[in-house]
Design a protein around this nucleic acid. Structure first.
Lengths: 230, 230
DNA sequence: TGACCTTAAAGTCACCCCAACCTTAAGTCA
DNA sequence: TGACTTAAGGTTGGGGTGACTTTAAGGTCA
């Protein structure tokens, strides 16, 4: 989509998405944040890695555009999707001007359709990325900061988890995202204090220790932004 | 600025700004949030009030566009400016599609140039607005929520104040924005704990009581967003 | 079967922050 | 001088948090 300004200069309007998933780190084996990137097949930055996205279609809402990008890239619907920021500085792209409305999404790694992970899509460790095209490195940094800030005060961790999970699972998500260790007892106390966790009444069996209780997230516990709220 | 999509449907890219200032309420006399609106002189919503803004010029950064709107509307530069959200649902505007990147700004009422407050610009009490064009009522509500949330954990109140001020002045800003009364002693303690206040060493004279100390804000205490940070 | 392992779950304690409240300070005004 | 007003600082009790301990409930293996 190309914009004709009053002085006949072109502006493109694109929607890109920072897609996060958790997967073990190849070296340490610790759970780490990963995100998919797309190799550019055109100038500028041909051959470089960039955030998945595309031009805004005239008939599509902004979030819908992010969703379809997500579907093309990972083959699935997001468990969490929120607008990050609109990047539009004049000099952020050589040649025609591009305004990018960037979303960030959380998905479960085990749900990612393997088929799409070929060709020009590849997953990378979020904190150890190659040089990216445009200002995408700064965008990812900003998205990482938002994710790490937001997981501490909103229940978005569930987007990385199956419907039922243990408190250890939940804690592992927090530890992976925040790159720290958390005291199990204190984490439990403050997690249960949020009132967003509902015990299923059942316990996880088959562990070689005391079976942990399973929990479910309270429905409708997330509320990202104005337009997505419906 | 008009966008030509692949199927020849038009999309406009606009930048609007929610501009806040503090001024006494006409009835109660209490300090209240006000914002300027512009009367639409064209369809759609002709005659209705709308947020100030305009099409994005191809040579202008997003924040620069917000700044120039601010200048046209109030005749001054913002003391605080931050991107709020990009609103772009297909149905938010009848006729051609409009994607609006909305900023919010804080200014000092006493700095507003009276000249521009004529014609089609008028200031309204932020919590008691007439019906607005498009989805602008929802946008203002969102901006109000952001302002009220952010003033509680970041030092943006200084944007409403002159360079030197008393703790009572600062508290009055918080009380006006949050529409509450705050305990003076506790407010003092937590304001000073932020380390963003620097005592000037002087006191305000001419009061009919104990003269209050004057403070100044630590330089560079605000950090809104990625692109504005430079 | 029982010692031993692991993690779950609950409890303890000291500390910090905060709301509510009180006391003293330092001016003006009648 | 006394009354009044707000500034500025102090006190106290409660809630939340971090660090830590204790008990519970399984499995594993000699």
């Amino acid at each position: 989509m190309t914009v004709m300004s009053s002085i006949d200069q072109r502006v493109s309007l694109a929607v890109s998405t920072v897609i996060f998933a958790l997967r073990p780190h190849p070296d340490s084996g610790l759970m780490t944040l990963w995100l998919p990137l797309v190799r550019r097949i055109r100038e500028p930055y041909e051959g470089q890695w960039a955030l998945p996205g595309g031009p805004l279609e005239a008939h599509e809402d902004l979030a819908a555009s992010a969703r379809s990008t997500l579907d093309r890239t990972t083959g699935l619907a997001p468990n969490y999707l929120e607008q990050l920021y609109a990047f539009g500085n004049v000099d952020r792209s050589p040649g025609d001007r591009v305004v990018s409305i960037v979303y960030w999404a959380l998905v479960r790694q085990d749900e990612v359709a393997r088929a799409v992970d070929g060709e020009n899509v590849e997953w990378f460790v979020a904190d150890d990325l190659p040089p990216l095209a445009f200002d995408h490195t700064a965008i990812v940094d900003y998205a990482l900061a938002r994710l790490r800030a937001k997981i501490t005060y909103t229940p978005i961790a569930h987007a990385f988890l199956p419907p039922e999970f243990t408190l250890a699972d939940l804690r592992a998500v927090h530890e992976a995202v925040l790159r720290t260790t958390l005291d199990p007892a204190n984490f439990r106390r403050q997690a249960l204090a949020t009132k967003t966790l509902v015990p299923t009444g059942t316990c996880l069996q088959g562990t070689s220790h005391r079976p942990p209780a399973l929990y479910r997230f309270e429905a409708g516990a997330t509320s990202p932004a104005p337009e997505e709220q419906r």
